[in-house]
C-alpha cells in the first residue's frame, strides 16, 4: 500500500513538473493563437448551459423509457430539441466569449499560379502518345469499343419494363358484358343511380388497381345529353360512365359540380382535384376548363336485367396522354 502511495506521489510530482515546464516554454515562445483574458462569468454560463443540455438529454431517455406518457412525441421532441438548443447556445457562447476570434488576413490562392504545371500535364499527355501513328483510327476504334461496351452495360436496364412495347398503356379491364360493381363489390343497379351525385364503379372480377378500372357514373336526364356521333345508346336511361382517371395527369376525378339553380348556372361537370380540369358529362366528356387536352374516355353501358354492364370498351385510351395517343384505341387486357 505504501509503495503504491510512493508511486502516486512520484508520478504526481513528475506530472506537475512537466506541466510547469511546458507552460514555461509556452510563455517564452511566440504563440500562434493570441492570448486573451479569461472570462469566468462566461465559463459559468457555459457550464450552466451544459448542465441544462445534460438534463434535457436525460429527460429524453426518461420519457422514452416510461410507458403511457401523455403527449409522448411532443415531450420527446421538446426534451431532445431543448437539449440540442442548450448545447448550441453553449457552443455559440464559447465562440463569442471564450476563444479568440481574431480577424486574420492572407492572400487568396492565385488562380493562374500553376501555369507551368498546367503546361506539364498537357505535355505529358501529348508526348505519351507520340509513338502512335494512326491516331484517328485508333481513337475511332476506342470510341467504338467504349461506346458499344457502354451500351452493353446499360442494356440490362431494359429489364425494368417494356421499353418499346407501349401497347399495354391502352389496356383496360373492360369488355362487352362486364358488370359494374361498387367499392364493396356489389353489382351496380340502374335504378339505384340517382341524379345530382356521382358513383365510383369498378369492373366485376378484375383488379381495381389499374388505370383503366375505375369509372365515374352519373345520371342525367336523357334530354340533357348531347353525345358525339356514334354513341347512340351508350347512355341507357341517361346513365353515363366515364373513366375516372383524368386525361391530364392521371389523378382520380373526385368532384362533381351540379347546378343548384340550372337556369343560370353552368351545367353538371366532373372536376379533377389535382389541376382542376373540368369535363362535361353531357357532351361525351369534353374539356370545359383546365389543362386537360383530351376528352374523358366514355364507356358504353347497357342494362341487363336491371344491372349495369359494359357494352364495349372506352371511346379512347384512359389516363394521361402521350405521343400519338389520339390514334390509339382502348385495348382489353
Amino acid at each position: 500500500m505504501t509503495r503504491l502511495k510512493d508511486w502516486a506521489v512520484a508520478g504526481l510530482a513528475l506530472l506537475v513538473g512537466k506541466l510547469a515546464a511546458s507552460s514555461r516554454t509556452e510563455e517564452t515562445e511566440e504563440r500562434i493563437v493570441p492570448a486573451g483574458a479569461p472570462d469566468r462569468r462566461a465559463e459559468t454560463w457555459v457550464l450552466a448551459l451544459l448542465a441544462l443540455a445534460t438534463l434535457g438529454a436525460a429527460g429524453f431517455i426518461v420519457v422514452y423509457a416510461l410507458e403511457d406518457v401523455p403527449h409522448k412525441t411532443q415531450l420527446l421532441g421538446a426534451t431532445l430539441g431543448l437539449s440540442l438548443a442548450f448545447l448550441a447556445a453553449g457552443c455559440i457562447l464559447v465562440g463569442a466569449r471564450l476563444v479568440v476570434t481574431e480577424q486574420l488576413e492572407e492572400p487568396y490562392p492565385e488562380p493562374t499560379a500553376n501555369e507551368s504545371d498546367q503546361d506539364a500535364v498537357a505535355e505529358i499527355v501529348r508526348e505519351s502518345g507520340s509513338r502512335i501513328t494512326r491516331r484517328r483510327l485508333l481513337t475511332l476504334g476506342g470510341v467504338a469499343a467504349g461506346g458499344t461496351l457502354g451500351l452493353a452495360l446499360i442494356t440490362p436496364a431494359l429489364s425494368l419494363g417494356p421499353l418499346l412495347d407501349t401497347e399495354a398503356l391502352t389496356d383496360t379491364p373492360w369488355r362487352p358484358g362486364r358488370r359494374l360493381v361498387d367499392e364493396a363489390n356489389r353489382q351496380l343497379r340502374a335504378d339505384e343511380i340517382e341524379e345530382n351525385t356521382f358513383y365510383t364503379a369498378f369492373p366485376e372480377g378484375a383488379s381495381e388497381e389499374t388505370l383503366g378500372a375505375p369509372l365515374i357514373v352519373v345520371r342525367l336526364s336523357p334530354d340533357q345529353l348531347d353525345l358525339p356521333k356514334g354513341r347512340d345508346g351508350w347512355a341507357p336511361e341517361g346513365i353515363l360512365a366515364y373513366s375516372k382517371i383524368c386525361t391530364h395527369a392521371g389523378c382520380a376525378i373526385s368532384l362533381y359540380r351540379k347546378p343548384t339553380f340550372p337556369e343560370v348556372q353552368p351545367g353538371p361537370a366532373f372536376v379533377c382535384p389535382c389541376h382542376y380540369s373540368t369535363f362535361d358529362p353531357a357532351t361525351g366528356g369534353t374539356v370545359l376548363f383546365g389543362p386537360a387536352g383530351r376528352p374523358l374516355p366514355q364507356l358504353p353501358l347497357e342494362i341487363e336485367s336491371g344491372v349495369l354492364r359494359a357494352a364495349g370498351n372506352f371511346s379512347g385510351p384512359v389516363g394521361p396522354s402521350w405521343w400519338g395517343v389520339r390514334m390509339k384505341k382502348a385495348g382489353t387486357s
Partner: peptide, 27 residues
Amino acid sequence: IVGVPAFPGQAPRSIGLALAVAAVLVL
C-alpha cells in the same frame, strides 16, 4: 482575404449552428 480562422474562432460557431439547426428541426 480577411476572416476568422476555422480553429478556434469559427469552429464553436459552426458547431453551435449545427446543433441549433438540429434543435429547431427536432422541436
